[in-house]
Design a protein around this nucleic acid. Structure first.
Lengths: 215, 215
DNA sequence: CAACAAAACGAATGATTGGTATGTGGTTTG
DNA sequence: CAAACCACATACCAATCATTCGTTTTGTTG
């Protein structure tokens, strides 16, 4: 095996082990020795490939941030396929797959929030609305989308809100380990959520009078 | 000072220090010595009041779970005052105040998810839909609310969804430290979110034809 | 005040921490 | 083929870990 191959192989082994352990024990709670052992290397070798412990952590977060941008990400594919705003249930299924595929990385965000006051992920979250805005501009140039949505809000707000609630729902289901968190099977809960996001929870103005009269 | 007073004072000092440190350094990342020092006590004394480290953690989570049930909690007061479903912006302000007042406890949830696989908080989250259901039944007996909401979903789903998105929004703003996460001032973003939750993001059926023709 | 219990202290235990210094054997390159 | 280099392991450091324990101080009660 060439030296370059060995080096790369070791680095990914280290990062993999670090991801696994950081995401389950926290940053301070994980030792370089544990990481080295799980990667099948010596502690000294870890320091040969990475300057210090924190760099391991920030490298993993950067990986995540790149992954999230990948057009092949289920969630991004669903968006590109036009799931928003007309097929929110398809978007939900993509959200589930995305969280499931990045479970340890999501945990890393919680670790950053707790142990680094969110210092590493803050930039990512701040840039997020810009990412969504760019996506909308490329997928629906001009105000193409605005005319298809109800008035009174930015399309980006609607998109971010739908994304947030769906991704957070599955974070709770998968990372917190809570099935049927709304007291309904997830499929039903999603259908209802999609309905509320699309048509609202309040009675439409027109129907209100009728309903009231009937009551 | 009576013995009982001393004991209670020490216990709360220990728990306060533990909350502060666990919520900023994680569970494994916090030592009993640190807790004892911050509480102004000896390490041995901590073990006099609590059997082990994990009991400190679980005690804090139980405290949180009780707090969340308190009718005086801003969020609960807003609900009791009828903010749902007609004044979601008031509910949002209550959500912000609630998160701000329980910031370290929210961090504790993340710690539990990461370092205990969510084992301690899972029960709480599973019971949550029951809590909301009981609230709805007491505040709006029978189907009083169902007739005021659009058809096609459980009132509880709507309530939980609105609560989740609002509480999560402020968790990101306050714990993650991300201002204007939707690319808009929070006040505007909240107004838009409330509008979407209430009336939906899609064009109402009646308006659709008109809009299309105009385009 | 005597007798007892609870509260508090702080040292000791053996294991583990992040990081470094040094040496060795294989890979590359002149 | 030798010199430079790189991946890697070993050994080591001072500091810290959760927990235990013998002891002292403080409060309560008869």
């Amino acid at each position: 095996m060439t030296q370059g191959e060995k080096s790369e192989r070791s680095q990914t082994a280290i990062l993999q082990a670090a991801l696994h352990l950081f995401s389950r024990q926290g940053y301070r709670g994980t030792s370089i020795r544990e990481i080295a052992t799980e990667a099948g290397l010596s502690t000294g070798n870890v320091y040969h490939h990475f300057p210090d412990k924190e760099t391991l952590f920030t490298t993993l977060l950067s990986q995540y941030w790149e992954d999230i941008d990948d057009p092949e990400l289920p969630f991004n594919k669903a968006l590109a396929a036009g799931a928003f705003p007309d097929d929110l249930e398809a978007l939900a299924r993509a959200a589930e797959e995305t969280i499931r595929g990045h479970r340890p990385y999501v945990a890393l965000i919680y670790v950053d929030v707790v142990e680094f006051e969110g210092n590493h992920i803050r930039k990512f979250y701040s840039e997020m609305s810009g990412r969504f805005a760019r996506f909308l501009e490329s997928r629906y140039p001009g105000d193409a989308l605005k005319d298809r949505l109800a008035p009174g809000f930015e399309p980006r707000t609607a998109l971010m809100m739908a994304s947030r609630i769906l991704l957070h729902y599955f974070s709770v289901e998968i990372l917190f380990g809570v099935p049927d968190q709304f007291g309904l099977p997830t499929s039903v809960a999603l259908r209802e959520m999609a309905g509320i996001l699309g048509r609202g929870m309040l009675l439409p103005e027109s129907a209100k009078a009728g309903k009231r009269r009937r009551a």
